[in-house]
């Protein structure tokens, strides 16, 4: 496990935020497709997606359910291989990586934040945060330091660190999850509907944390179906029926969005998106 980690990823294991691969992009996708087979039925989840994400960006990938955004996130997050197309992560083509190589990628370069939080329920906050380090074989003393740093960055008060994760509130849980995502100092933080299970107020605080992390130089890709959430990012990619329908910079100042979050009809995200009227088809 360690040996393969060294081969595949150690050489790129340097401070991530300022790292620029030869092309300058952190992520470069060319014509990604994903086809699921269930019986004789072929489902085209992605029908040729090309995009680039540079270090330090904060991108929201938006789309209604069934649009392919989750599939895109899985491929971007090295959880799955595309059916065809090329995917360069930090200049390295990983679309043909094996399960174990992808596991190394996830462990060392990517931090995940999930809608369902996915903490170990009977473990302490600290134990949850150090879990990725456990799979890296990092010594215990070093783990503690890193965990404390990550928890500070994620903004969880020190008094909660020794609590069991099921004794915390939703917002606190998500902060633990963010700390866990940060602990390996990943190149990319992938957040899948991070506010989906939180009330608006708590969601706002979490989104504010993402903004702060982005300000500190972390690259973030956030998946959502709510335009209000997407607006908090610096760039929004809209996806529908497996294709990118728009890719735009969010020009407005972030502080305004914090002051007056736009009311969102969660049931009809597509309409909200259309109503925004700033669609600019790129692909």
């Amino acid at each position: 496990m360690k040996a393969s980690a060294d081969e595949t990823t150690r050489e790129r294991d340097m401070p991530t935020v300022n790292e620029a691969p030869s092309s300058g992009h952190m992520i470069e996708c060319r014509d990604l497709t994903k086809v699921y087979l269930s019986g004789d039925q072929e489902t085209h989840a992605l029908c040729g997606v090309s995009l680039t994400i540079d270090p330090g960006e904060y991108v929201a990938i938006m789309g209604p359910s069934g649009s392919g955004k989750s599939t895109l996130m899985h491929i971007l997050g090295a959880l799955d291989n595309p059916t065809s197309g090329e995917y360069y992560f930090e200049g390295q083509e990983i679309s043909e990586f094996s399960d174990d190589e992808l596991a190394d990628m996830r462990r060392l370069r990517i931090g995940f934040v999930f809608q369902q939080f996915n903490l170990l329920p009977r473990a302490t906050v600290l134990r949850n945060v150090v879990l990725p380090l456990v799979y890296s074989g990092i010594p215990r003393g070093e783990r503690e330091e890193k965990a404390e740093a990550a928890l500070r960055k994620a903004g969880l008060e020190e008094s909660h660190w020794t609590h069991l994760s099921n004794q915390l509130s939703g917002g606190q849980i998500q902060r633990v999850a963010i700390a866990r995502a940060l602990i390996n100092d990943p190149a990319l933080i992938l957040a899948d509907e991070p506010t989906g299970n939180l009330d608006t107020k708590t969601g706002d605080i979490i989104l504010e944390t993402f903004n702060e992390l982005n300000d500190k130089g972390h690259t973030i890709v956030l998946i959502t179906h709510e335009s209000a959430v997407a607006e908090r990012a610096r760039r929004t990619i809209r996806i529908m029926d497996g294709l990118i329908v728009s890719d735009q910079r969010n020009g407005h100042h972030r502080a305004a969005a914090v002051a007056a979050p736009a009311p969102v009809d969660a049931a009809a995200p597509a309409e909200t998106a259309a109503a925004a009227g700033e669609t600019e088809v790129v692909s």
Binding site: M1, G77, D99, D100, A103, D104, F112, N118, P132
Partner: peptide, 14 residues
């Protein structure tokens, strides 16, 4: 779910 999480954060099959 826990197994899924462990795999997502980089645990291998082994």
């Amino acid at each position: 779910r826990e197994i899924g999480l462990r795999k997502a954060i980089g645990a291998k099959r082994r």
